[in-house]
Design a protein around this nucleic acid. Structure first.
Length: 423
RNA sequence: GUGGGUGUAGCUCAGUUGGUUAGAGCGCCGGACUGUGGCUCCGGAGGCCGCGGGUUCAAGUCCCGUUACCCACCCCA
C-alpha cells in the first residue's frame, strides 16, 4: 500500500504536536480572560451551510471544497473554515435569542482543495473566536485585541506584525458601491486583466486584490468604499479606530483589504508578517458578519470573529526564533541493574507515577549504562537504581542527576525523597 | 489547473568525464569504564540510489515516461 499521507496533509509528529498543544493551551487561558468559552462543531456540514454563508462566487466555494455524498444521499462538505458552522450552531441552539450573546472559540482542522505550498495545506489547522449577538464597536476592538495579544503571547513580537483594517460597509451602502466599482472596471476594461474583467460581473471588490501590477495601478484610482460608507457604517468604523487608538494598538487602514468571503460587513482585519511564510503573509484575519445568520433564515443577528492558522503562526514563531519548545519527558528514571529486579523496578515506577511524578523506565533489558543515557536524554533529574545489593537491605539507590549525589533510600520512602529532590 | 526545482541510510547531504564492494555527519545500538549519564575514542546495525522502460560490455550517474514532495502563479489561514 501507499504509506504516504495524502497530498496537502501532514502528520504532526511529537515535535510539532507539542507546539500545537502549546498553541491551544495558550488560546484557552488567554481567551478565557476575555470571557470566551470553548465550542466544538462537526468537521463536516450540509454543503449549503458553506455555499450560502461563504458565497457561491468565492474561490472557496467554487473550487476548493471537499464535497461528497453520504450513503443517505446527503450532500456534505468538509468545513473549509469555521465561522459558518459556528453561526449555524448558534442559530440551531438559539444561543443568541432574546438579546443573549455568545462568545466562543474553537480549534481544529479545516479543508480546502488547493495546490499545497509553503504555509498552505489541504488540511490545515485553525483557532477561531466568535462574538455573536453584539453590534457595538467595542466588541470589534476586543476581538482584534485578543488576536494581537495571542500572537504576542506566543512570542511573535509586535514589531514583526502588521495589523490591517478596513470597512466593508453594510446593506445600506455596499450594493451601491459594488455597482460603482463594477462600472469602473467596465470603463477601464482594456487596461485590466481578463480575470478582473470577469470579476466585474461576479465579485467586483475582488479586483482590489489582483496582484497584476497593471491592475493594481488602475484599481488605485477606483472609488474607495471608505468614501462611500453610509453614516452608520462610517460612525462604526470611526469608533473602532478610536478604541484601537485608546488601546495603543497600531494599525494600518488598507482600503484594498477585501477578504475572500462574502459574509463580511463593516469591520474586516488581517494580521500579516513579513518573514517565514513564503509567498503568503497573513497569519490571521477576520471581520464582522452582521447578515450571516439572516442568510441562514434566522433573525437579524450581528457578529464577528477571527481565525488564525496554526501552520502559519508556527512559521512566524520560528522566524521570530521561538519555534522550538523544550521538553522534559521524564522527571525521574527508574533503572534496573539486571533482570532479577525487573519486577521491583516496575513496581517502583508505578508507585512514583501514582504519586504524580513523570517516570520512564526500560522495558527491553538494556544495559545500565544505556539506561542512564536514556535518563539523561529524557531530562530526568533523578534516577532510581534498583539493584540486588541494596534490595537485599530493602533499599534502592537514588542518584541526583544534577549534583551526582547518591544515597540509599528505603523502599517505602522513595516517593517522599524524590518529591523533596524535585522541589 | 499551469510553471520551475528536487527525489541516495531514521535525519541532513556527498557521490568526479557512466566503471565493478554506494559514502560522510548527526541519530541509534554495543564496547573502552566487569552496576551509572552528559566529553572522547573504537566497533556495529541500517540503503527496491522514488518507480518503470531505454542506451551501454557496464547506469546512483545518460535518455524517455511516470509518481511523490517542494516552491511559485491563483487565492487564502
Amino acid at each position: 500500500m501507499n504509506a504516504r499521507a495524502p497530498k496537502g496533509t501532514a502528520d504532526m509528529l511529537p515535535d510539532v504536536a507539542r507546539v500545537w498543544e502549546h498553541m491551544q493551551r495558550t488560546a484557552q487561558t488567554l481567551f478565557a480572560r476575555y470571557g470566551y468559552e470553548p465550542i466544538y462543531t462537526p468537521v463536516f456540514e450540509h454543503t449549503e451551510v458553506f455555499t450560502r454563508g461563504i458565497g457561491e462566487a468565492t474561490d472557496i466555494v467554487s473550487k476548493e471544497m471537499y464535497t461528497f455524498e453520504d450513503k443517505g444521499g446527503r450532500s456534505l462538505t468538509l468545513r473549509p473554515e469555521g465561522t459558518a458552522s459556528i453561526v449555524r450552531s448558534a442559530l440551531e441552539h438559539n444561543l443568541t435569542s432574546n438579546g443573549q450573546f455568545a462568545k466562543v472559540y474553537y480549534a481544529g482542522p479545516m479543508f480546502r482543495y488547493e495546490r499545497p505550498q509553503k504555509g498552505r495545506m489541504r488540511q490545515f489547522w485553525q483557532i477561531g473566536l466568535e462574538a455573536i449577538g453584539m453590534a457595538e464597536p467595542s466588541v470589534d476592538a476586543e476581538v482584534i485585541m485578543v488576536l494581537m495579544r495571542y500572537f504576542e503571547e506566543l512570542g511573535i513580537p509586535r514589531a514583526n506584525m502588521r495589523l490591517l483594517i478596513n470597512s466593508m460597509g453594510d446593506q445600506a451602502c455596499r450594493p451601491a458601491y459594488r455597482d460603482k466599482v463594477a462600472a469602473f472596471i467596465r470603463e477601464h476594461g482594456e487596461e485590466l486583466c481578463e480575470e478582473c474583467n470577469r470579476r466585474a460581473e461576479t465579485n467586483p471588490l475582488r479586483a482590489f486584490d489582483c496582484k497584476n501590477p497593471a491592475c493594481a495601478a488602475v484599481m488605485a484610482e477606483a472609488p474607495l468604499l471608505r468614501d462611500e460608507l453610509c453614516d452608520a457604517c462610517a460612525a462604526h468604523y470611526a469608533a473602532v479606530k478610536e478604541l484601537l487608538d485608546d488601546l495603543g494598538l497600531a494599525y494600518e487602514e488598507d482600503p484594498s483589504l477585501v477578504r475572500g468571503l462574502d459574509y463580511y460587513t463593516r469591520t474586516v482585519f488581517e494580521v500579516q508578517v513579513d518573514a517565514g511564510l513564503g509567498s503568503q503573509n497573513a497569519i490571521g484575519g477576520g471581520g464582522r458578519y452582521d447578515r450571516l445568520m439572516e442568510e441562514y433564515g434566522g433573525p437579524a443577528t450581528p457578529g464577528l470573529g477571527f481565525a488564525l492558522g496554526f501552520e502559519r503562526t508556527f512559521l512566524a514563531m520560528q522566524a521570530a526564533g521561538v519555534g522550538v519548545l523544550g521538553h522534559a519527558l521524564a522527571e525521574v528514571y527508574v533503572a534496573r541493574v539486571d533482570d532479577s529486579v525487573g519486577a521491583v523496578a516496575f513496581a517502583v515506577a508505578q508507585e512514583l507515577r501514582d504519586a504524580g511524578i513523570a517516570v520512564e523506565l526500560d522495558h527491553q533489558g538494556r544495559s545500565l549504562k544505556s539506561q542512564f543515557k536514556q535518563a539523561d536524554r529524557l531530562g530526568a533529574r533523578a534516577v532510581v537504581v534498583v539493584g540486588p545489593d541494596e534490595l537485599a537491605a530493602g533499599a534502592v539507590t537514588l542518584r541526583n542527576m544534577v549534583t551526582k549525589d547518591e544515597t540509599h533510600v528505603p523502599l517505602g520512602e522513595i516517593a517522599g525523597r524524590i518529591r523533596t529532590l524535585l522541589g
